[in-house]
Amino acid sequence: MQSDPDSHVLPSKTRIGRTALRVSDLGDMAEFYREVVGLNVLSHSETTAILGVEQTPLLVLEEDENALARDQSGAGLYHNAFRVPSRGALGDALTRIRDRWHLGGASDHGVSEALYLTDPEGNGVEIYRDFPRQEWPIADDGRVQIGTYSIDLEPVEAAATGKPGVPVGTDVGHVHLEVTSLEMFGDFYVDTLGFDVQTTVPNASFVSAGGYHHHIGANTWHHRTGPVSGRGLSWFEVVLPETEALETIRDRVAGSQFAVTETTDGISVIGPDEIEVRFRVET
């Protein structure tokens, strides 16, 4: 699943856009992502809530009262990762979590510092901030190296600004998936779509565009054996900087085993483990 350096890769400004969760209690979930994560509710209907920062949507909650709990053998979301622009914003997130929820863990990854928690329906959530890019550890082959190290949360807590919610500049930095096969993950996300592998660790792979540490992570740590189903990940979005990149992906997927479906603003592909990935051009 190593990418060929001579093959077409995604443009450097490719990024993750919105992610969507299938939920059973829209009210509780919207409250959690507003009060604990710090997103704003941009719109709310009987069955859908869209949350984000200012007018930028980041998370879509789709209510399905009949959706079963996620099958523990099934693939799906490991965590959605919301990236904040400063240590102060991360300190504010830590304060909200300690005041209103419970912190599941925290780590220094060499490229970032991150807080981890779980939402009311069992979906993983990461809130993190990147270290300056020039400080990221780079391997001899030029790839970014991600590690997991202990973190002192006192400086993070001390940096808190006291401002409510997440600031402008917050986005979805990456999505981390649980998959049934890293080989299939690589065949699709690297060989077909054009992401580059940055870091591999036992039973996990991290891929990106433009030399970012990772836009998509995937692991087989919990030995999932079936496709995504029930509550949890519904779809996530890859945003491309130019129409040519979208056309390239459309052509490359059309030549694979996966089908392309046209959407109002781009295309949708049901990839490995029946995880839906949507693509659109930056507007």
Rank of each mutant, 00 (worst) to 15 (best):
Q2M: 12
H8K: 12
R15V: 13
R15F: 02
I16T: 10
G17C: 05
T19S: 13
S24I: 08
L26I: 00
A30V: 01
E31S: 12
V36H: 03
L39A: 02
E46S: 15
T48P: 02
E63I: 04
A67D: 06
A69V: 03
G76W: 02
L77K: 10
F82E: 00
R83I: 08
R87Q: 12
G91R: 03
A93G: 10
L94S: 11
L94E: 12
D99R: 12
A106Q: 07
H109G: 04
E113R: 01
E113Q: 08
D119K: 05
P120L: 05
P132Q: 05
P137M: 06
I138Q: 11
G142F: 12
I146Q: 00
I146G: 05
I146C: 06
G147P: 03
Y149P: 00
P155T: 11
V156F: 00
A158F: 10
A158I: 06
A159E: 01
G165P: 03
D171I: 13
D171N: 12
G173W: 07
H176Q: 06
L177K: 03
E183F: 09
V197Y: 05
T200M: 09
V201R: 15
A204C: 00
G211C: 04
H213R: 05
I216M: 08
H222P: 02
H222N: 14
V228T: 09
G230K: 09
G232P: 09
W235R: 10
F236T: 07
V238Q: 07
V239L: 05
V239T: 08
L240K: 07
T243R: 15
L246T: 00
E247K: 13
T248V: 13
T248L: 14
R252Y: 04
A254E: 14
T261L: 06
T263A: 08
T263W: 08
T264M: 11
D265C: 05
I267N: 08
I270E: 14
G271P: 07
G271A: 13
V277G: 02
R278D: 04
R278M: 09
T283N: 13
T283D: 13
T283W: 09
